[in-house]
Computed example of a mutant assay.
Amino acid sequence: MTNPNYTKAINWNNIEDIIDKSTWEKLTEQFWLDTRIPLSNDLDDWRSLSDVERDLVSHVFGGLTLLDTVQSDTGMDSLRADARTQHEEAVLNNIQFMESVHAKSYSSIFSTLNTKTEIDEIFAWIDANKNLQYKAQTVNKIYQNGTPLEKKIASVFLETFLFYSGFFTPLYYLGNNKLANVAEIIKLIIRDESVHGTYIGYKFQLGFDELGDEEQEALKSWAYDLLYDLYANEEIYTDDLYGQLGWAEDVKTFLRYNANKALMNLGFDPLFPDTASDVNPIVMNGLSTGTTNHDFFSQVGNGYLLGQVEAMSDDDYNFD
């Protein structure tokens, strides 16, 4: 795509892949910022939680901050190097920016709910947690050294699987009528990630279909081995986070369900027997990605132009 003696201007009137255009439009329609959400309204709920619960929420968001940092710092740069079209590069630029918005959003939550000392402790915990660092480093190494298709597999696993051990907590509290505004941020992030994961999975499938049978089988085996490795680490991470509250098994079910979704984004068969009906129904209800509009005068809230932006559904990004 590059030539040292020639620079090509992007032409949105000449689309090579219509999915690039439709994804750009979906992402820009969904644009949001954390500053629009009144997180301080959750302070009473926060004070009602036990010390163990507050530690859980803080560490969960700490873990999510690290993973979003990986995506925004190295992930999208890595994928952009292998973009098929200029329009794909533009979409990945958008995704990279929103991953930075996601990471900043967790800091907005911290600054609202936590003291300065607590925030310092959260980031020290991020640096020291071996299982959290393992999954971040595993994905990062693939971004730095993997093939273009391996990078896409790692990205989809991060977007559609690894985030969800963290997403469980705010969705659970939302179902119990607590931390509603914090949960709104998570629902907006999930809405973004559902587009990111399916789009990158679609781009993976384009490249995968160009491989010979032996190459496909080898790459598929590599993907399943990676998922097994990440899931084994995630079980330990989940036990560490949720063991005291007795939620670990529910979270693992949620993880397995989303691991299957990640595989399906890649065009692969599900690995685990878990389905939506096995997931804690309170959490599944929270996965509905419709948003609440807090600013009725300008029609801009955490659901930006809510009447024009539909919630994501499982079939929203069926690229077949």
Score class of each variant (00 low, 15 high):
105 S>Q: 09
105 S>N: 10
106 Y>D: 02
106 Y>V: 04
106 Y>H: 05
106 Y>G: 00
106 Y>F: 09
107 S>N: 10
107 S>M: 09
107 S>F: 06
108 S>D: 01
108 S>I: 00
108 S>K: 03
108 S>M: 02
108 S>A: 02
109 I>P: 00
109 I>E: 10
109 I>L: 11
110 F>H: 12
111 S>H: 15
112 T>D: 05
112 T>Y: 05
112 T>S: 10
112 T>M: 02
113 L>A: 04
113 L>D: 00
113 L>E: 01
113 L>M: 15
114 N>I: 01
114 N>D: 07
114 N>L: 12
114 N>P: 00
114 N>A: 00
114 N>F: 10
114 N>K: 10
114 N>S: 08
114 N>Y: 08
115 T>F: 13
115 T>I: 06
115 T>G: 07
115 T>R: 09
116 K>E: 13
116 K>Q: 06
116 K>V: 07
117 T>L: 12
117 T>R: 04
117 T>P: 09
117 T>V: 07
118 E>F: 08
118 E>R: 12
118 E>K: 14
119 I>W: 03
119 I>P: 03
119 I>C: 06
119 I>V: 14
120 D>N: 12
120 D>T: 05
120 D>G: 05
121 E>G: 07
121 E>V: 05
121 E>M: 04
122 I>G: 03
122 I>D: 02
122 I>V: 14
123 F>H: 15
123 F>D: 02
123 F>T: 03
124 A>H: 11
124 A>V: 09
124 A>D: 14
124 A>W: 11
124 A>M: 09
125 W>P: 11
125 W>G: 02
125 W>K: 12
125 W>S: 03
125 W>Q: 05
125 W>V: 00
126 I>Y: 06
126 I>V: 14
127 D>R: 07
127 D>A: 04
127 D>L: 08
127 D>Q: 12
127 D>Y: 08
127 D>S: 03
128 A>E: 15
128 A>I: 01
128 A>V: 01
128 A>Y: 11
128 A>G: 11
128 A>C: 13
129 N>H: 13
129 N>G: 10
129 N>Y: 10
130 K>T: 09
130 K>P: 13
130 K>L: 10
132 L>F: 00
132 L>Y: 02
133 Q>I: 07
133 Q>E: 07
133 Q>K: 14
133 Q>H: 08
133 Q>S: 02
134 Y>F: 15
134 Y>C: 11
135 K>V: 04
135 K>L: 11
135 K>Y: 08
135 K>F: 08
136 A>T: 09
136 A>V: 04
136 A>N: 07
136 A>E: 11
137 Q>W: 06
137 Q>A: 09
137 Q>H: 02
137 Q>Y: 01
138 T>N: 08
138 T>S: 13
138 T>G: 06
138 T>H: 15
138 T>W: 00
138 T>P: 02
139 V>T: 15
139 V>G: 04
139 V>W: 05
139 V>M: 06
140 N>P: 01
